[in-house]
Amino acid sequence: MRVGIPIWGSKVSPVLDASEQLLVVELTGTERSDVETVSFGGWGMMRRARLIGDLGLDVLICGAISGRLAGLLAWKDVRVIPWVSGEVDDVLRAFVEGRLSGKRFAMPGYRGMGRGGGRGGGGRGRQGGRRHGGG
């Protein structure tokens, strides 16, 4: 399973719309191998969505995301698990173990809609609307 996650140092980038780097990892069972780190600092929303769509991700785990970018990604058939915060290693481990929907990784303000808890588990995952993630 190929997972994308925007990174800021060792953390999940707080805003996908403004993030500068995206880490792509391959998860096989509990094994993780980092495939590549893609830079997209300063990119607009559409170029960003196009790039993410072209990476062939099974899942994108990210922090805050605008409804508009979420809509573009939904159209690109990218399953998004938004409003996640924390250390990248912890987040990926929690995703593998199906614990990502726990409060520990939820950004404040998040109201509990549209997040999957982990691999194959829970939630609709895909974001398509202007209003999502609570509010």
């Binding site: 805050a64 605008s66 979420a70 974001q127 202007r130 609570g134």
Partner: peptide, 8 residues
């Protein structure tokens, strides 16, 4: 900013 409703 991105508010809790996902709006910029």
């Amino acid at each position: 900013i991105i508010n809790a409703a996902g709006e910029r």
